[in-house]
Design a protein around this nucleic acid. Structure first.
Lengths: 333, 333
DNA sequence: AATCAAACTGAAAACGTTTTCAGCTTGATG
DNA sequence: CATCAAGCTGAAAACGTTTTCAGTTTGATT
C-alpha cells in the first residue's frame, strides 16, 4: 500500500559507501572526495532519495521549524505581520507552524505546549496581552521566543514594536491642534497593557500638554471589530466627541461608517485617526489618516531576531523599536 | 546549558515500570491496570514529562501536522479559508505548517518537497492554477492532498469549491437584467483555469442566453490587487462598460474607488458585483453586492475532507461543491 | 623509501518514541 | 484443583537520521 520509502541506508548500499558518507553529502560537509560525492549524488538522483526531516530532527535536535502564535490570521493587521515572518523564515530555511489563539489564554497555553512538544526551534508570539499563565510557559520554555507587535510590560521578553505611547500622543496632538477639544480614545480592552499602559498614556500626555482635562467618558473600550465600531456612533455623539484616535483599522472603519451612515461628515463633523495603516485605510472612503507602522517589517525583524537567538548569536538589543509615522489622509483636516 | 529534558525512560525508571507501559499510559491505551496508570501519571506530573513529538513521529510515522500552501495570507479571501482550515485542524489535533507561495510554481514545488520531507500527514493546497510541475509533485506524493477554493480542470484531485460558472452566470444575468448591455468581466490571469474555463464560461453563457454578443474588449485580465483595479477606470470607460463582474474583492474595491474617484456614481453610472463576499464588501461605501461564498466553510470542509483521507475513511464525493448565493448590496440596483 | 599531516571514510552509538510479541498474573470456570 | 482466557507488563526491535571517534588513504616532503 504505502509507497516504500527509500532511506539513507538504501543509498549507502547502492553507492557502496557508508550512511555516514551519504549523510555528509546530503549536508554539504566538505570532507568528501569529489568522486565519492558525485557517486552518491547520482544514486540519490536515481533512487529519488529525500531525507526524512523527522529522523533528522530527532538525531540533530533541530527541526528548522518555528511556531507562530497569532490572534487571528483573518485580521489584516496580524496577517501582515505573519507575512513578514514567513518570508524571513523561508529565507533562513525555516518553516512555520501557525496557530490562531483568539487571544484566549487557555488556548495560548495549550498551543505553546504543543509547539514545545513538536520541538520547534523558536517561537514568535503575537497578542495584546501576556497572561500570567502564558508568561509562566515562556519561562519554562527552553526555546527562544520573541514577541511581534506586542508589548511586554515587564520588559523581559525580546520584542519588536513601535513606540505606541509616542505615536498615540502625536496622533492625539494632531487632532487637538485641529481645534478638537473633545477627542475620544477608542481601543480594545483596557486590560491589555498595550492599551492601558502605552496608548492611553500617550493620549493622556497629549491632553495634558494641551492643557485639556482628561475625561474618562471619552474613553471607549470595545473589541477590535468592525461591528463594534459601527455601533459606537450614538455613544460618541452623546459625549460630544468631535474626533477619535482609534486603536485598530477595522474598528476605525466601523466607527467611520457608523458616523457617516448617521449623516455626519468625516472629517468636517468628525475626525478620525487610526493606528495600523493597513491597506484598509486606503480602501474606505474617505481614506483614513493613520499612525503608520511598518507592519511587514515588524514581522520580518522579529523573525530575523529569532534566527539570531536560535543560533546563539549575540544580540545587541533585545527589544527593538521600529519607526512610526503619521499619515494624513482624508479623515482629518 | 540546555535544560536537560526528561524522557520516557526517566519516567519508566522512577515509576518502576517499562517504557512500554509509560507509552501506553501516555497514549491512553486501555491495557493498563488503574493502579499502574495512576503511579505513572503521578511520576509524569512530578517530573513534568512531555512526550517528544519528533521521536513519536519517527516511531509512529504520523506527525499530526498538515501542510497548507496559500498564495498570500495577507489576502483576505485566502486568510478566511486558512482560518477555517486551522480551526478544523485544531479540532482534530492537527497543526498546520503554513507557507506563502505567491502562486509561484517554482516556489510551490519547492514547498511541496519541504512538506513531504517533514512528513506531513496531509496537505491543503490553495492557488488559482496547478502547473504541470506541481501536478507532478501531487502525483508522486504518498500523502493525501486536497484543494481548497481552487479548481482542478483535470478533475483528479479532491477539492472543495463552489460552482464558479453558475455563480458568475447568475451575477452577469443580474447585471444584464438591470439593463446593462455592456457588462465587463474583470478577473485575474486568464491563464488560470478558474478564470478561463469556469468564470469566463459563466459570463459567456449569461450573454448568450440574453442574446448579447460576446465582445472580448469587455474582458479585462489583471492581477488581483486593489491598485490594479483602481487603474482600470479609464479603460472601462473607453469601452463604454456600464457594469462589471469582478473576480476578487480587493480588485473590486479598487475598481469601485477608481470609478467613484473619477466622479461617476456607483451604482447609478456603473454597477459592480464582486466575487468573494469577504468582510471588505461591507466596509467600503457603497457596500458591494457580491456572489457569496462560504469562505470559512470551504477551508473547514477541505480540512475535514483531508482528515477523512488521512485516516482512510471512505469518502463519498471527492469533489464537493458548496452552495453559493448572490448578495445584493449598494453597488447594484 | 620513510614519515607525517591532511583528507577522507566507516562502525556504531545516540536521538526518544511506538509497537510487536511473548510471558506472566489473575480470577473465573468446570 | 486444574485450566484457560483475559488482562496486564516488559524486552527489544524498529523508525531514519546525525555525530563521534577511530581508522585508512593519499600525497607531499625529507
Amino acid at each position: 500500500m504505502d509507497k516504500q520509502t527509500v532511506t539513507i541506508y538504501d543509498v549507502a548500499r547502492e553507492a557502496d559507501v557508508s550512511m555516514a558518507t551519504v549523510s555528509r553529502v546530503v549536508n554539504g560537509n566538505p570532507n568528501v572526495k569529489p568522486a565519492t560525492r558525485k557517486k552518491v549524488l547520482d544514486v540519490i538522483e536515481r533512487l529519488d532519495y529525500r531525507p526524512n526531516a523527522v529522523a533528522r530532527g530527532l538525531a540533530s535536535k533541530k527541526t528548522t521549524t518555528v511556531g507562530v502564535i497569532i490572534p487571528d490570521v483573518t485580521n489584516i493587521y496580524f496577517s501582515a505581520l505573519a507575512r513578514g515572518i514567513d518570508d524571513i523564515a523561508m529565507m533562513y530555511k525555516y518553516n512555520i507552524i501557525l496557530t490562531n489563539s483568539d487571544e484566549n489564554g487557555r488556548k495560548e497555553v495549550q498551543v505553546l505546549n504543543t509547539l514545545m512538544a513538536k520541538q520547534v526551534d523558536g517561537i514568535v508570539f503575537m497578542g495584546n496581552d501576556i497572561s500570567d499563565e502564558v508568561r509562566k510557559e515562556f519561562e519554562r520554555a527552553k526555546t527562544p521566543i520573541v514577541l511581534a507587535g506586542c508589548v511586554d510590560d515587564q520588559d523581559q521578553m525580546p520584542s519588536v514594536n513601535i513606540d505606541y505611547t509616542a505615536a498615540v500622543e502625536e496622533a492625539t496632538k494632531n487632532l487637538i491642534d485641529h481645534g478638537n477639544e473633545r477627542v475620544a480614545f477608542v481601543s480594545g480592552s483596557l486590560d491589555f497593557p498595550i492599551n492601558r499602559d502605552y496608548r492611553l498614556k500617550g493620549y493622556k500626555q497629549a491632553l495634558k500638554k494641551a492643557g485639556l482635562r482628561y475625561d474618562d467618558k471619552l474613553v471607549f473600550e470595545t473589541d477590535y471589530s468592525y461591528k463594534a465600531g459601527q455601533l459606537l456612533q450614538p455613544a460618541l455623539q452623546s459625549v460630544k466627541a468631535t474626533a477619535a484616535v482609534i486603536g485598530d483599522d477595522e474598528l476605525a472603519a466601523g466607527v467611520m461608517n457608523g458616523v457617516t451612515d448617521a449623516g455626519l461628515s468625516v472629517p468636517d463633523d468628525f475626525e478620525i485617526i487610526t493606528s495600523n495603516d493597513t491597506k484598509l485605510t486606503e480602501m474606505v472612503r474617505p481614506k483614513m489618516s493613520s499612525i503608520t507602522q511598518p507592519l511587514y517589517d515588524i514581522g520580518a525583524v522579529a523573525m530575523r531576531l529569532l534566527t539570531k537567538l536560535m543560533s546563539n548569536e549575540a544580540v545587541e538589543n533585545k527589544t527593538v523599536l521600529l519607526p512610526y509615522g503619521l499619515m494624513k489622509r482624508a479623515s482629518t483636516h
